[in-house]
Structures are given as C-alpha cells and as structure tokens.
Simulated scan of single mutants.
Amino acid sequence: MDYKKLVDILKLEPHPEGGYFKETYRSEQTLALEGGEVRNVSTAIYYLLENKKKSSFHRIKSDELWFFHQGEPLEIVFIKNGELHTVLLGNSLENGEVPQLKIEANLWFGAKILGGNGYSLVSCTVAPGFDFLDFELADRDVLLQEYPSLKEVIEEFTH
C-alpha cells in the first residue's frame, strides 16, 4: 500500500518531529505529577514515517512504547548515559528486529526507515499520557555541546 493512502485512510496529520500521526486513545483517568501538573494516565497514537523522512531528536517526560505494524523496519536511535543506542523495530525477529520497544522518559531519540525507502507504520503509547507541554525538539548546538562524540548522528537527526 502507498503511504499516502495510509495517511488518508487513518486521517494522519503532520507531526512537529517529522512524519504523520493521529491520536487514537486518551484515557479519561488523570493523575497528578510531582510538579502538580495533571496528565491523562495513558495515550496512544498511530505514527508513520515515509522514505527518507526522519523523526528528529526529541524527548518527552514519560516512558513511550513503540509497536511495529507494517512496512519497512524502523531504525530508532537514542542517547542513554552519553552513548548512542540503535534498535530495529520490525517483524523480522530472525534479523534482530523487535516488534516493540520502550524509550525511557527524558531520553533524546529519533527514528528513520532502514534503507530510506517505503514507509513504516507504528503505534506509540505514552504513560503518563502525552502532552505537548512535555515535548522538546532537540537544539543541534546544545546537543553537540553535550555530546560532541555523537556529532554525525546529531547532525543527521536535527535541523
């Protein structure tokens, strides 16, 4: 299936980090965070990347689970303890891909399609639930100062 058809069928909208998304679930239950902010207990979205587009380095204040649905494997990169980690999200377990991945709260991460052609359709759930107030796109210069040894990947996943 063509990615444009999926965008239309699922009614996806452009996401600020790159790609397309649509919120599919927001729990009615809420909880109070340490700072007094109130968040829904959980949220879920469809997320789609196509061709050479990337999910730019960003971070959120909650854990995020990624689930692979269809298309090409998705290469997810994240920085943890100053080191770069790469995980392939996909259905080919025999080739080292995993169908689900947890990104811990406050880690810088991004994604791209392995090989750069086609599309990847995934779902992401966030708990406590996603709020754009908890979303931060990476500033290239700030990340380069903090992680100079990761210059190449920082330049690839930032604007």
Rank of each mutant, 00 (worst) to 15 (best):
V142W: 05
T125Y: 02
S149P: 02
I76N: 12
L89H: 06
S27I: 06
Y25A: 07
E155K: 14
G90V: 02
H15G: 09
N106P: 00
I79R: 04
N51H: 05
Y20K: 01
L101Q: 03
Q70W: 04
R26A: 13
E146M: 13
A32P: 00
K53M: 05
Y3W: 15
E83N: 09
G36C: 12
I76G: 00
T30R: 08
E37P: 12
I76D: 01
E146Y: 03
F109Y: 14
F157K: 01
Y3N: 10
V98Q: 14
G71C: 09
A105C: 04
Q100P: 00
P73V: 05
K4N: 15
D141R: 13
H85P: 00
L6D: 06
S42R: 11
H58N: 09
N106H: 07
I113C: 08
T30S: 15
R140W: 09
T158A: 02
E146F: 09
K61R: 07
L49P: 09
K54A: 01
F67Y: 15
E34W: 04
S56V: 11
L88P: 03
L121K: 01
L114Q: 12
E34D: 15
G129M: 05
C124Q: 07
F21R: 06
F57L: 11
F68S: 10
W66G: 05
Y25N: 15
G110D: 00
L12G: 06
L33H: 13
T125Q: 15
E23F: 10
K112Y: 02
P73D: 08
D139G: 03
V7P: 00
S149D: 15
G35D: 15
K112N: 03
F68N: 04
P148N: 05
Q145G: 06
E155L: 07
F57P: 02
S149M: 08
D2I: 08
G118P: 00
N51T: 07
K80S: 15
E23G: 03
Q70D: 07
E152C: 09
E104H: 07
G115C: 11
L12A: 05
P16R: 10
K4A: 13
N81C: 04
V7Q: 08
L143C: 09
Q70V: 15
V142E: 13
L89M: 12
